[in-house]
Design a protein around this nucleic acid. Structure first.
Length: 168
DNA sequence: GCCAACGTTGGC
DNA sequence: GCCAACGTTGGC
């Protein structure tokens, strides 16, 4: 039985840095390096383990949704913020009172067909999605449930298939 | 590479 | 608190 409170998300990563194929290989990875407060607040406060997220390839040709993953932990301190050698180092964050937060994410499925940003924009049923709004940059966004399943379907996966693969 | 749309920083 | 300068994101 799936939790009725499952929430749905879209999370961006540049595939040159870390893409769906990397997550499929690794199985489970920390989603870290988020340095925007609005995105941090979603990571820290709004997500729950078991939530499902669209894996979005940003800065790609073309950009779009590549698959599905599952939020697989509670909020954890983002250790990169404590490492002076990391690009994501932030002196404001210390282990006693971490400013930046990560979640573990687990691979669920790669889409059979990549759903491009243009595909999202031209589908009237997806009107109002944040990701299609010009100029928006938020790297972690809530997604309406109906939009989530519609995008999975466009990617070649039924709701049933996604729920089975996600263990829910 | 360009640049619009932000978010952050810091002087005042 | 205002806002100009600057840095970043990310589509194109």
């Amino acid at each position: 039985m799936s939790r009725s409170s499952t929430q749905f998300w879209l999370m961006k990563s540049e595939p040159d840095v870390y893409g769906i194929a990397d997550l499929e290989r690794d199985g489970r990875e920390p989603w870290n390096g988020i340095r925007n407060y609005q995105a941090r607040n979603f990571l820290r406060d709004a997500m729950a383990a078991g939530d499902l997220a669209l894996f979005y390839h940003s800065n790609a040709t073309p950009p779009g949704v590549a698959g599905v993953m599952r939020i697989d932990s509670g909020p954890e301190p983002d250790g990169l913020a404590f490492d002076p050698d990391s690009n994501y180092f932030d002196a404001k964050s210390d282990p006693e009172e971490p400013v930046w937060i990560q979640r573990q994410v687990a691979f669920v499925a790669a889409f059979e067909s990549f759903v491009t940003l243009a595909d999202l924009r031209e589908d009237p049923e997806l009107e109002g999605m944040l990701v299609t709004r010009k100029g928006q940059r938020l790297s972690i966004q809530p997604v309406e449930e109906a939009h989530f399943w519609r995008i999975c379907r466009k990617g070649g996966l039924t709701k049933k298939a996604v729920l089975e693969k996600s263990g829910q």
